[in-house]
Design a binder for these strands. Structure first.
Lengths: 194, 194, 194, 194
DNA sequence: AATGAATGAGTATTCATTCAT
DNA sequence: AATGAATGAATACTCATTCAT
């Protein structure tokens, strides 16, 4: 089900997340996609290209998940919470993609650049909102970019248990959305005015 | 300078941090250490063994950096700040090791376990202190483990710019200890009593 | 000509017979088979596997050569002579395989076990026939198994000159089937009744 | 005990017999001799040289064992029996050397030549005696060289069980000198006059 | 004389990629 | 469009041999 191209991307996403770029092999991607090895090359010019497209798809799917959460007629905290929640749900549903997009990807330098770019975009989005919150008197006066970085770190930390080993079910179950919200509440308490 | 064994570990540390375990080659480790390829095998039985020892050395050097910061006669916040500062300094001085120890290492499953273990130890240390802070009325009532995870995320986020590309000097210079302290201040504001 | 798999087995058979298992290299097997080195691994999982299959093929081809010589309506001596002749012809036509199957193969312990097994089967076949010959009064009363071992030794000794160096043509030409028969005649004279 | 040189030869003899020339390593020879790896090179110029000397020592020790058995004032059969007995005892006491000297050594072409030389000397010795036995009317008229080959094969076959695996004690115990004598008796019955 | 340390040349094996069908 | 077959280039690891002490 799904076009061959999609099946390849799916298989690649899972495999790259499990083993990293170098340790993953085109042969296993093909096997998991249920097609012949050389067919992969009908759709992608190289292993690098597969990885690039995998990241791109993951990125798009991530940004899609964020869309529409921004300009809502409510407090900045609510907007940020909505975004954070979207992040949480994305990680829960697309664990593999989430791992691929995790900040630290120790492999293939060019991929790191790509990912750093995404990080910058997220920070920009956050800091813009935080700046607005400060202007509107909702948050106290902090360095918006720095606060944005902190928020990103908090999101990653709270989602981290979701990213490890399929079998570690216990840990995962403990990671509820309520706990997640209590976690980011610490951040908001830290920057709210007064 | 330095024993051969140390030179190998140094070269390996840098290379693993740059390329990840799989993409790094024993030959390049040897080249960087300024020795013949097979000499590496006089000191380490296999590439895996090199990696294991690299992690072990990094871990020890990290834990050493934390030592003596714990039982000081002052507020819990001060203790946590001291630990955080030690973390910051460690990352600044041992950038490569720090990257190796970064929470997400997408390669070699057994290494991931090792690193998750370290993460747990750090969370345990943090949450124990936070629990104490709550008991002493310094912090408000929060889930200590959750708060510990948040703190860890904050530390990682604030140190992240130090971990990327040697050439990106501009970003690094912007990461001062003062900024770092202002960053974790957000966390403390979020959990202080009142 | 011949499937790739067969060409590899052929090349391997010759090379193993010439140099032994350890000294033979996969690269040379491939070169002799006229294919790329890695193509070998499309057909066999490892060097060990190549060797195993080579032995298996040699064994089968040897046992095939023996088939149909057993239950003939004539004297046991004639049956044994027929078998011995088949052995002789096999050695002459499949010199390399014959060397592989020679009793003493100083390399790779597990191969030795395999070959000892073959030796046992041959001895069992011989001693069974000899026992029959004794029962029928054709041979005198000797330990059948011991006599079987002796016969095997005689066969090997008489075929030995065929097994060495391709260039030593002179010696080989001297080894005729008539000489071979005169040789085993000594054995028969030694065990015939009266 | 014994000079270093002797200890090396001893260790090498055992190792070559176990694994064959190529699979044996200089390092293990040194380890078994209880000396440093490079010390081996103080006594032997190369691995090949060690092998050559090992064979030479084995050969000498074998020929020594045969000495004095030749010109005795009795029947040729008795002389041959004495030689055969010496062979049997040698194999029993110097199993490793015996394996090295076994007719088929599938490794290192130049060694094969050496061993073929030994084979020729033994055949020459046997056939000379057999010729004498024929001249004296003790044996019937057979091709002396061929008979010599047959005798050699019989000796090897009867000693073969002694050459395999240290642990296979059962088989070895079954190989008594009496059984051995009954075995060669078959040969003698085959060539005795009348 | 003895050896620990060092290494270059090799060896089995893997894998991204190409090509004929 | 799809793929089985083929392979060159790489890579971890081994080992005979050298050399400084």
């Amino acid at each position: 089900m799904g076009s061959k191209r999609e099946r390849i991307l799916h298989a690649a996403e899972a495999l790259f997340a499990e083993k990293g770029f170098t340790a993953a092999t085109v042969e296993e991607v093909a096997r998991r996609a249920g097609i012949g090895k050389s067919t992969v090359y009908e759709y992608f010019g190289s292993k690098d290209e597969i990885f690039r497209q995998t990241l791109k798809a993951g990125l798009e799917s991530y940004l899609d998940a964020m869309k529409g959460r921004l300009k809502q007629p409510c407090s900045v905290r609510d907007v940020l919470t909505a975004i954070a929640t979207a992040h949480f749900n994305f990680v829960k549903e697309h664990t593999f993609t989430a791992r691929l997009l995790a900040d630290e990807y120790n492999d293939t330098p060019w991929a790191r650049q790509w990912l750093l770019g995404l990080r910058e975009r997220r920070i920009a989005m956050f800091s813009s909102l935080i700046r607005q919150g400060i202007a509107e008197g909702e948050f106290r006066l902090v360095d918006p970019r720095m606060a944005a970085e902190v928020l990103l770190g908090v999101l990653n930390a709270l989602c981290a248990p979701l990213l490890n080993g399929k079998n570690d079910g216990k840990n995962k179950d403990a990671v509820t959305i309520e706990r997640f919200h209590r976690g980011i509440a610490i951040f908001f308490e830290g920057i709210l005015a007064k």
